[in-house]
């Protein structure tokens, strides 16, 4: 409390306003009766109703949800394995290299990741569609899962694993019955993160997909290019609400665990 002055609250309020006013305006105009996005014509939910009759948009949303679930699951399995490896490995060149490889997709510009995966799929002559997008998203989100699970593993009480080992449990059994259950909040948070990242991705999906498989961000993008429309505001509002619910859930899961520990 000491030293919290007027200037600090001004910086806080200004910063948070900058972050939230644009989103607030977007949500507000999704309830606008007028088709003109910037002229207020009264409260209405008609744009949400018109979303329901938009079959192309519904197909895209279903595809995106399916891809997000599948890719998040693959990324969580692989990412958790990588986190276990990084946590257990002795410090050295191999660990450093492995850690670098895991983190690399995080800093790689999306356009490059997308282009390179497309070239791979073309060279292998696989048909591009939902499956290739799933593979691409799993690759992209794996590193984020590793980051979260590793942070969780680092805070675990090692003596629990040692106690189990002293009592005669095999290393695999210790991992399955002690380490993984303790790391579960991190694993769940990692899955949710991978899910939202996949649901959000436009660039990599555009490269990795083929005709016939259009994800929700791709639909929104082509609609946005034609200009603003209250339907985009409505679908955006639904997405924001869904993601916000997921993030708050994830942070509550992590926090509750912290309170218990």
């Amino acid at each position: 409390m000491k030293g919290f002055r007027l200037i600090h609250s001004v910086a806080l309020i200004a910063g948070l306003l900058f972050l939230y006013v644009p989103i607030g305006i977007l949500i507000l105009y999704s309830f606008n009766a007028s088709r003109l996005v910037t002229v207020w014509g009264g409260f209405s939910t008609q744009w949400y109703a018109s979303l329901l009759s938009n079959q192309a948009l519904k197909d895209a949303a279903l595809l995106s949800l399916g891809v997000a679930m599948a890719s998040a699951t693959i990324a969580t399995v692989l990412g958790t394995l990588a986190a276990l490896a990084l946590e257990r490995a002795r410090p050295g060149r191999a660990k450093l290299l492995f850690g670098g490889l895991i983190a690399a997709p995080m800093v790689m510009p999306e356009v490059i990741t997308g282009l390179s995966l497309l070239l791979l799929f073309v060279a292998l002559n696989v048909e591009r569609g939902a499956i290739t997008v799933t593979l691409a998203h799993a690759t992209l989100t794996l590193c984020f899962v590793t980051m979260i699970v590793q942070a969780r593993l680092a805070t675990l009480d090692r003596s629990l694993e040692e106690a189990a080992q002293d009592l005669g449990a095999s290393p695999w059994r210790v991992t399955l019955t002690i380490t993984l259950p303790l790391a579960l909040p991190g694993i769940i948070a990692g899955w949710l993160l991978a899910f939202t990242l996949s649901l959000d991705d436009l660039v990599i999906a555009s490269f990795a997909t083929g005709p016939g498989a259009t994800t929700l961000p791709m639909r929104i993008y082509s609609a946005v290019r034609l200009g603003v429309s209250p339907e985009i505001n409505a679908i955006s509002t639904l997405l924001i609400a869904g993601v916000a619910a997921l993030v708050v859930t994830a942070s509550l899961i992590l926090k509750r665990e912290k309170l218990i520990a």
Partner: peptide
């Protein structure tokens, strides 16, 4: 020593995945 061997086994799957879907594609670029 034992923990290191287990670390290697755990690292195998993500390593192969990233080799196939990250390193190899970039070499193709």
């Amino acid at each position: 020593m034992r923990t290191d061997r287990r670390a290697r086994i755990a690292a195998l799957a993500p390593l192969l995945w990233l080799a196939a879907f990250f390193v190899l594609p970039f070499l193709m670029v």
